[in-house]
Amino acid sequence: MSIGHTLLGLLESGPRHGYDLKRAFDEKFGHDRPLHYGQVYSTMSRLLKNGLVEVDGIEAGGGPERKRYAITDAGITDVEHWLATPEKPAEYLQSTLYTKVVLALLTHRDAGDILDSQRSEHLRSMRILTDRKRHGDLADQLICDHALFHLEADLRWLELTAARLDKLRAVVAK
């Protein structure tokens, strides 16, 4: 999961303080692993360096956490590209996919497209596995089946998420 892209995506809805960013991240994606201030700080300075964000203003009182960040046009393009690129099928993919879906909803992009392209990516892998299975020996078949069932589980979760997008949109918009 890319924390940088996630923070960028959160900034797309408007400029925020570093502290706000951490709070928003924790609330929507942190769950059991809240972000450290240090992580936010270092990520933001990397994004600043790459020109993906800019400092919108500094509040009196000093301290790094009082800086207000805003996303640049280059930053928006970067988020766009990240969302549109399907993830390589792998284990424990769902946190990334979940983040992408939520961010897409937050930034009023079409979350269904993310699911469709991800499914396409999965199917590409599954086709290769299916083909290998058809021409391989029993051991190949069993190994491929294992991978296929995992990919299928991912896809099923994707379908389910797609079916629940409307509900999710309502929850995210809160």
């Binding site: 269904g112 469709d116 499914r119 396409s120 199917l123 599954m126 299916t130 296929l148």
Partner: peptide, 17 residues
Amino acid sequence: THEARVAAYSDREIVVR
């Protein structure tokens, strides 16, 4: 089909939504 493992026998897919 709605099953990915069946769709994996295809050359490409079209999604209807």
